[in-house]
């Protein structure tokens, strides 16, 4: 065999892959480097590619002043609303698929709720939340994110559940499972890849929400995107704090994607039925 040619191809391929990876990783690297730079380095020209020393004072400031709580607030609101939306949405999708709840039109109606531009409803929701006393509360934000994500979860899970062969469920029913057990022991394992992918996206939607968090919070449950804007002052902009806070916002997402990756594998349903 022509090993020589094969070797060169491999090298070229690696170089190309590396270039592409660099292109995508660079912004994150830049963000991280800013968070560790000294103020002089941030504004230096030509730019400083690697900070001279790891300056963690921005992080210390975030934790000392309690600003880092914003990340915790984001984790709680995004996390809990994802869990609730996944549970309710999966049950609703199962009902729609298996019992034809709402016929043909309910699903379209549900997904249409997701199509409303958030800004159009932000003000009415603000007034509603004021009236209900939900402004600046976890309950308020979690409820809102759950309501906003539910249509997406129902829509996605409906598709995944439809693809599960009915006989797998029926076999479980005959074998002695209740409907509830069928959902946890058959439906969710069968739709596992789709289930976790949907959960990740649901989490990301809530995690990245800026509009509602800005309108509906004041000081108690400020989430990290809102917190970041606090460093753009009228006199000065605190770049190292922005960098550090943004890093705190990026890290959980990396962890989420990395842990979920192994669940989001395709081809899980191979071999379920004939063929």
């Amino acid at each position: 065999m022509r090993r020589w040619e094969h070797g060169w191809r491999l090298v070229l391929r690696m170089i190309l892959a590396l270039a592409i990876a660099l292109f995508f990783v660079f912004p994150i690297y830049w963000l991280a480097s800013i968070s560790f730079k000294s103020p002089e380095e941030i504004f230096a020209y030509p730019p400083v590619w690697v900070p001279a020393e790891l300056n963690v004072s921005a992080y210390i400031a975030l934790f000392r002043d309690g600003d880092a709580w914003a990340v915790w607030n984001s984790l709680v609101t995004a996390g809990l609303s994802t869990v609730i939306a996944m549970i309710l949405g999966t049950l609703a999708a199962y009902g729609i698929v298996r019992y034809r709840t709402g016929g043909e039109n309910l699903t379209i109606w549900i997904i249409s709720q997701r199509m409303i531009p958030p800004i159009c409803v932000a003000f009415p929701i603000f007034l509603l939340f004021v009236a209900l006393g939900l402004i600046d509360t976890f309950v308020g934000l979690i409820t809102l994110y759950t309501a906003f994500n539910l249509p997406y979860v129902i829509w996605m899970m409906r598709g995944y559940i439809q693809d599960i062969p009915l006989e797998l469920e029926q076999s479980a029913l005959v074998d002695g499972l209740s409907r509830w057990a069928v959902i946890t022991k058959v439906i969710i394992p069968m739709a596992r890849g789709g289930f976790f992918a949907t959960a990740v996206f649901t989490f990301i939607f809530a995690w990245n929400d800026f509009l509602f968090a800005l309108v509906l919070t004041r000081s108690e449950v400020v989430t990290y995107p809102v917190q970041v804007t606090g460093y753009f002052g009228s006199q000065s902009t605190f770049w190292s704090q922005i960098g550090a806070m943004s890093m705190l916002g990026v890290l959980p997402m990396m962890v989420v994607v990395a842990t979920m990756q192994r669940f989001i594998v395709r081809g899980m349903s191979m071999g379920a039925v004939k063929g």
Binding site: P165, E167, L168, M190, S269, A272, V273, K274
Partner: peptide
């Protein structure tokens, strides 16, 4: 069942 109905996971 005709389709075997085995759980792939």
């Amino acid at each position: 069942f005709q389709s075997y109905a085995l759980y792939p996971y």
